[in-house]
Simulated scan of single mutants.
Amino acid sequence: MSNRQPSQFTVLAIASGGGHWEELMLLRPALSEGRVVFATTNRELAVRDGVEKVHLLPDANRDEPRLALSSMIASARLVWRLRPHVVVTTGALPGLFCLIFGRLTGARTVWIDSIAASDRPSLSGALARPFATRWYTQWKHLETAAREYKGALL
C-alpha cells in the first residue's frame, strides 16, 4: 500500500542527457495524459526542446560512486516529493534510480532500454528489471517474456 496522496495523475518522465533524452522526447506525444513532469541531467536540452519546467538531477555513472550517490539521493527526493503515478525512463543511471524509488512508492514503472543496447540489455536496464512494471527493448532479437518489443523509437 502506498502513502500516495490523492492528486492529479502524474507521470515522471526522466532521462539522462544525449541519446537517452532524444529517445524520451520522441515519446512526448504518448505522454499526454495527466500532468507530465520531466527530469534530466542537462537543462540546455530541455530548453532546446521547449520543456519549460524540468527537474535537474546530477549526472552519474557506475564509475563515479560519489556522483552516483548524489544522483540517488536527489532522485529519491524528487520521487518522494512528486509521488508520481507512473515513472517512464529511457535511462541511464538517474532514470534507474527514479524507477526504483517510484516502484517503492507504489508507482507503475516503465523502462525503455536505449536503442544503443543492440547486443544485450544495458547494465542499468538489467538492474531495472525487478523494479519495472513494463520493460521494453528496441530490438526484436532481444525480446523475451520479460522484455517486450513494440518497435524502435529511432
Results as ranks from 00 to 15, higher is better:
residue 93 L to W: 06
residue 99 L to Y: 05
residue 38 F to H: 12
residue 48 R to D: 09
residue 28 R to I: 00
residue 88 V to I: 14
residue 85 H to D: 13
residue 94 P to R: 07
residue 18 G to H: 02
residue 139 W to M: 06
residue 29 P to T: 02
residue 148 E to K: 15
residue 67 L to W: 12
residue 73 I to P: 05
residue 132 A to R: 03
residue 145 A to Y: 03
residue 88 V to G: 05
residue 62 R to Y: 12
residue 88 V to H: 00
residue 71 S to M: 14
residue 142 L to V: 06
residue 149 Y to T: 09
residue 108 R to Y: 09
residue 124 S to T: 15
residue 113 D to G: 06
residue 73 I to D: 07
residue 18 G to L: 02
residue 113 D to E: 05
residue 7 S to Q: 15
residue 109 T to I: 02
residue 64 E to P: 01
residue 18 G to A: 03
residue 28 R to Q: 11
residue 133 T to A: 03
residue 133 T to V: 08
residue 16 S to E: 02
residue 103 R to W: 03
residue 67 L to D: 13
residue 65 P to F: 10
residue 127 L to E: 04
residue 92 A to Q: 01
residue 77 R to W: 15
residue 22 E to K: 02
residue 41 T to N: 04
residue 67 L to C: 10
residue 110 V to Q: 00
residue 130 P to L: 06
residue 121 P to W: 04
residue 140 K to G: 01
residue 134 R to W: 11
residue 137 T to H: 02
residue 138 Q to W: 09
residue 24 L to Y: 00
residue 88 V to R: 06
residue 151 G to I: 10
residue 10 T to R: 15
residue 98 C to A: 13
residue 84 P to S: 12
residue 24 L to T: 02
residue 46 A to M: 07
residue 42 N to W: 07
residue 81 R to Q: 13
residue 76 A to M: 14
residue 1 M to R: 13
residue 131 F to L: 01
residue 4 R to T: 12
residue 122 S to F: 06
residue 71 S to Y: 12
residue 83 R to C: 11
residue 154 L to D: 03
residue 62 R to I: 13
residue 107 A to Y: 06
residue 149 Y to I: 10
residue 93 L to D: 05
residue 34 G to N: 01
residue 11 V to Q: 05
residue 101 F to C: 05
residue 8 Q to P: 01
residue 122 S to W: 05
residue 88 V to S: 01
residue 1 M to E: 11
residue 45 L to N: 06
residue 39 A to E: 09
residue 92 A to I: 00
residue 94 P to H: 08
residue 93 L to T: 05
residue 94 P to V: 10
residue 90 T to E: 01
residue 150 K to N: 10
